[in-house]
Computed example of a mutant assay.
Amino acid sequence: MKTPNVLLYKRMARQRGVGLIELMISIVIGLILVLLVSNYYLSSRQSYQTTIVSSEITDSQRYAVQLITRQLLLAGYSDYWFNQQTEFTSLPAKGSVPAFGAGQVVASNPGSDRIWIRFRPAALENQQIVACDNQIINEPIDTVVVMQLGVNTDQALFCKRIDTGGGSVPLLNGVDAMAFDFLDDSDAFQPAGAVADWSSVRAVRLNLILRSETATFDTPTQQVINWPGGNRVFNDRQMRARMTRVVALRNNLGGI
């Protein structure tokens, strides 16, 4: 008959602990699982953030295009005119505002991210013109309105009425770059410095680089964007998008 001590010894001999190799394998498997779950979470978070920011930039693009297009479509507008040369007479340069020749309704300086637009108010009360600063133009029809669109030092799109000396009104943040090309009698889009006859300009091409307000990437990420005159390189956490839009100047006598 076996003594209790012998039975206890055999029972203890059958109990085995976890060896070092087994412990290490368990830790590695656990780390792999944690890594997989973390990667999935980060990937899902990045995908969600990218979707949200893409929507933000799309909204900014839509707003910028609508606003600038609406203003460009006013270039050369007049209720009663028979000759664009007499309706829009020449103006000398003043400060940063370039000179306007007779019949010229848009202007820009070489290398500038700003554009100036001329038009006249509407005569009928139910055809009131709303300028880019959201103000109704209600002056007499013999008034020549001069509006300026550009990018300020805070990288915001702004609007300013020049003929009345109005102040600058910020419209949209996150504009990294803006440039204009002009379709003239050469039948090709030209930068401002290459336009020979501004009165012949019949279309404007808008180029924009918009930046998200919300940080998209977890770490600074390089983005290279093709741009007239050379690529633009950015290295931060914001997402960017470039857009191009051509606007025909429908009030130009020599229109397309």
Rank of each mutant, 00 (worst) to 15 (best):
S212F: 06
V204H: 05
L36F: 13
L23K: 05
R120V: 01
V37D: 02
Y80P: 00
R237L: 13
G167A: 12
L149M: 14
R211F: 05
G111M: 01
E213R: 14
S96T: 14
R202Y: 08
D181Q: 13
Y9R: 10
S90K: 10
A122S: 15
W81A: 00
A102C: 09
T69W: 01
R120K: 14
N5R: 11
G229D: 06
S199L: 00
F158H: 08
Q127I: 04
F119S: 09
I25F: 05
R240C: 04
T164V: 12
T164N: 12
Y9C: 01
D154S: 15
L157R: 07
I137Y: 07
S55P: 01
A122E: 01
I141C: 03
M178K: 08
S55R: 13
V175F: 07
G167W: 02
S26V: 10
A107S: 14
G165C: 04
I136Q: 10
F182A: 04
D181L: 07
T143D: 11
Y48C: 02
S44Q: 12
Q71L: 13
Q46S: 15
R62F: 07
L91N: 03
F88Q: 08
G254D: 10
E125G: 14
V18F: 15
F119D: 04
D218T: 13
W81C: 13
Y41K: 04
K160T: 07
I256F: 15
F180P: 00
Q49N: 09
K2G: 01
D187W: 04
G193N: 01
S108Y: 06
G150A: 11
A93I: 07
N235G: 04
M24H: 05
L31F: 13
V151H: 05
S212L: 04
